[in-house]
């Protein structure tokens, strides 16, 4: 299942930051990881990923460096900054609160895998 655009806009950056919290990654790697670890939920149009990364970089939450990858080709690697880590923690708290709120309303019966991942399941 894919997320609606508006939901993706809110959750996408948190998901990307969560991935980068484990180490630096380049664009295609992020696309693959999102698809693989979110069971397709965050399988986004790839054209959306790069603007999202540029936005996070503009906000100082991630930084990027050009360097050669394992095959020798140069790629742009993104990593989470200290500000990004702080922001990720805040986002995580907010998502948990949201999920709990939705649970109390009976929107879902148990904590979803996504909520589990966002609350630190991937780390």
């Amino acid at each position: 299942m894919k997320l609606e655009r508006e939901l993706m806009r809110g959750a996408g950056p948190t998901a990307v930051m969560q991935l980068l919290s484990s180490g630096e990654m380049y664009g295609y790697q992020i696309v693959e990881s999102l698809a693989a670890h979110s069971k397709g939920v965050f399988e986004m149009g790839q054209s959306t990923l790069y603007p999202m990364l540029y936005n996070l970089e503009a906000k100082g939450l991630v930084s990027s460096t050009n360097k050669p990858g394992p095959n020798g080709r140069e790629r742009r690697y993104y990593r989470l900054t200290a500000a990004g880590r702080k922001r990720l923690e805040q986002d995580r708290q907010q998502w948990l609160a949201l999920i709990e709120g939705l649970g109390a309303l009976g929107v879902h019966r148990s904590v979803s895998p996504l909520a589990w991942k966002l609350s630190g399941g991937l780390t």
């Binding site: 696309v31 149009g45 790839q46 054209s47 959306t48 790069y50 603007p51 999202m52 540029y54 936005n55 970089e57 503009a58």
Partner: peptide, 20 residues
């Protein structure tokens, strides 16, 4: 196909780069 609409991509990239 996975990349999506180039025009939409261009617009999003432009906006994000301008902010940055």
């Amino acid at each position: 196909d996975d990349f999506g609409d180039p025009k939409v991509a261009a617009s999003l990239i432009r906006n994000s780069k301008l902010k940055g």
